[in-house]
Amino acid sequence: MFNTASELIKLCKERNSKISQIIIEKEIESSRLTHEELIEKMKEILSTMQNSAKYSLDKEVISVSKLTGGNAKKVEDYKNNNKTICGKLINSAMAMALSTSEVNASMGRIVAAPTAGASGILPAALLTVKERLNLSDEDLVMGLFTAAGIGEIVVKNATVSGAEGGCQAECGVASAMAAAAVVELAGGSVEASFNAASFSIINVMGLVCDPVAGLVEFPCSIRNASGVANALISADLALAGVKSFVPFDEVVEAMYKVGKLMPESLKETALGGIADTKTGREAWKRL
């Protein structure tokens, strides 16, 4: 049906549809699920996401390795009891992104979106706008279809694997998926969704994947927190009418090329970046 953003935008225009509607049509065609079954299946995805995004807000969740944890609760408490710098919305979003990351690192249940390492971003972004815009769960399910459509374009034309493309391909793409969904949920145009998605990837182009001791913990959870902020500000830029000078398909291609140019040491091998610091190396030895 479509392989690129430009094809998807064209389809949306021809059928006067939102991105989510086209993705749903495509999925029904290829999966043999009924409309109802498909929506029901996506509701289950949303429900897992909601649980993981809220789980660590009121308790200290520590990782299997015991290296990290407890940050979601810290940010949630800070937001509730302080004036903060960025305000309640961004702090709440970061707390939820950290929550899913901590659930993941403690062997809890999450939805890879598009990967486990970046799984905190999309749930946090959707739940944040749910509250901000008074949306229903049904609305958020539509947002998930839009996000999946953006992810699919990247999977087809580039990569979402940290081992292949660095963190830009995991957290960057998760932010792009979230940003596009948020724009649609806020009533923005199809083009605005893709502008937002472009901004999210551009903002972290070149971001390396350098997990300490090879574990999906630090700096991954911090980048989930910054990733949801990236998604939300990208959405606002696009909703304000700012356009990406370079279209999404080309941004994705650039991201892919940058990933190819990265040395192996910066692609999930834990041999470079933050992993290859005195503290990072010592943590690996201690495990």
């Binding site: 993705i23 486990a116 999906v216």
Partner: peptide
């Protein structure tokens, strides 16, 4: 790709 290839798997962390 299915939407559930992109949003999924539902899994126990930390690493697919």
């Amino acid at each position: 790709y299915s939407v559930f290839d992109v949003l999924g798997p539902v899994m126990i962390g930390p690493s697919s």
